[in-house]
Simulated assay, not measured.
Amino acid sequence: MTGRPLSRRHTLRTTAGAAAALTVAAAPPAAASATGPGPGPERTGKPTVVLVHGAFADASSWNPVTERLQQYGHPVIAVANPLRGLTHDAAHVAARLAAVPGPVVLVGHSYGGAVVTQAAATAPTVKALVYVSAFIPDAGEVLGELAARFPGSRLEASLDPVPVPSSAFTDRVSSAAWHTVPSWTLISGRDRGIVPELQRFQASRARSRTVEVPSSHLPMYSRPDAVVALIRSAARTIAA
């Protein structure tokens, strides 16, 4: 993962390992995101939950989580992560956060964890960070180098590189909000994309409140109730 640039136009090899690690199940488009009018934090008494997806995905990857959170009365926004590189993506999410009234629980999955880590550093309304099978980089780190510290990932073997410039895994992280914002982490114990050892290391370093589930890289589908429970735990620490 250290020497190959990633792009939204990467394709996935149809191997069993790749499917287990990276495939996002199809979801109804109607529930892809909760960005339209609805009860805000001033109506519900709850902070807004903002969800940021990872690579090889879109906002619909959060559907099972979005639906459950809304059933509990949480305002939810599933942001469309542009996937144009860490610097660009973090700036896009930060701009979206600036338009959200009241406190925010900011949640990132996979590569989205790096995006929320950097975006929250310039978003004072973010009061809690939640990482779901995610990268949790520190300032100055590069995702490719971070991932290479712990062997066993099938991510690189699952990619067919194409000659399109991308800085997702080569951008250096400018700032890490988890130093000042409390965090919660869900570790997927059967993850073959971001290996569990890396997830545990990152969570420990960030002093996250941590739960671990026997899931692959997509606990939003295999363990949505656990994901929702962790987000709600973070939300309960915040007064809207």
Rank of each mutant, 00 (worst) to 15 (best):
Met1Gln: 11
Thr2Pro: 02
Thr2Glu: 13
Arg13Ala: 15
Thr14Gln: 14
Ala18Asp: 11
Ala18Leu: 10
Ala19Val: 08
Ala31Gly: 08
Ser33Lys: 02
Pro37Thr: 07
Pro39Tyr: 08
Pro47Asp: 06
Ala57Gln: 06
Ala57Thr: 10
Asn63Glu: 15
Asn63Gln: 15
Val65Arg: 01
Glu67Val: 15
Asn81Gly: 04
Arg84Gln: 15
Asp89Val: 12
Val93Ala: 11
Ala94Val: 06
Ala98Tyr: 13
Gly102Ala: 15
Pro103Ile: 14
Val105His: 09
Val107Ile: 15
Gly108Trp: 05
Gly108Gln: 09
Val115Leu: 13
Gln118Val: 08
Gln118His: 10
Ala119Gly: 09
Thr122Ser: 09
Tyr131Lys: 06
Ser133Phe: 02
Pro137Asn: 11
Pro137Ser: 10
Val142Asn: 06
Phe150Ile: 00
Gly152Gln: 02
Ala157Gly: 09
Ala157Ser: 14
Ala168Arg: 01
Ala168Tyr: 01
Asp171Asn: 03
Val173Cys: 08
Ala176Asp: 04
His179Val: 03
Thr180Lys: 09
Pro182Thr: 06
Ile187Gly: 00
Ser188Glu: 00
Ser188Thr: 01
Ser188Pro: 02
Arg192Leu: 07
Gly193Cys: 08
Gln199Trp: 00
Gln202Asp: 13
Ala203Gly: 07
Ala206Gln: 01
Arg207His: 12
His217Gln: 11
His217Leu: 03
Tyr221Met: 03
Pro224Val: 11
Asp225Arg: 13
Val227Glu: 05
Ala229Ser: 10
Leu230Lys: 02
Arg232Trp: 05
Ala235Pro: 01
